[in-house]
């Protein structure tokens, strides 16, 4: 699912991860909304790719040529439903004891770290579902998170592209 499609690998990847249904689909829904809204059009062609992923084990194989991974996932932590959280790898590792996937998100990120090291910068953004899966619908939660999600992504990608431009200018 490429938005600014070219054949060269895009350095910035946004991946919505989760299930296809229930509030665990928030990561998916966010990625699909980013695509459908044309939000990515503000960035130069070939810089950004948006996709979805159900199985964390697929994630490391999706990052060929990537330099910045922005992973969006649903977060069940009891915080305000629809609030956006910047998660560290340590937080994820602590909560990864019972993944229902062959390889959980924390392990997949551990694998990326082991293989790519500093070559890929990883940012995990969690959208809170509240305490449980019940209550607010995914649409409502995403609506709540949508403004801060766009702002946060813009901020992170903007900083990355500025750094990238500076590095390129220095190189040439």
């Amino acid at each position: 699912m490429t938005d600014t499609g070219t054949t060269a690998p895009a350095p910035v990847r946004i991946v919505g991860i989760g299930s296809a249904a229930g509030s665990d689909s928030l990561g998916w829904d966010a990625a699909e909304r980013l695509l459908a809204s044309g939000w990515a059009g503000r960035y130069p062609a070939g810089k950004l790719e948006i996709s979805t992923c159900t199985t964390p084990a697929q994630l490391p194989a999706m990052l060929d040529g990537a330099r910045l991974l922005l992973l969006i996932d649903a977060l069940q932590d009891g915080s305000t439903p629809g609030s956006l959280h910047w998660l560290s790898a340590n937080t994820l590792a602590a909560g990864s004891q019972a993944s229902s996937h062959g390889l959980g998100v924390a392990e997949a990120l551990g694998l990326i770290d082991a293989l790519q090291g500093d070559a890929v910068e990883v940012v995990v953004l969690g959208i809170s579902t509240g305490i449980s899966d019940h209550g607010a619908t995914g649409d409502t939660l995403l609506e709540t998170a949508w403004p801060s999600l766009q702002t946060t992504l813009d901020e992170i990608i903007g900083q990355y592209l500025a750094r990238d431009e500076t590095a390129s200018a220095r190189y040439y």
Binding site: Q58, P60, A61, M62, D64, L103, E107, L111, A114, L115
Partner: peptide
Amino acid sequence: APAMAKAYPDEVRRGLALQA
């Protein structure tokens, strides 16, 4: 898998490339 990848990075990269 991450612990193994640190000791066998080339083999795991090869596996991920075939998966991709």
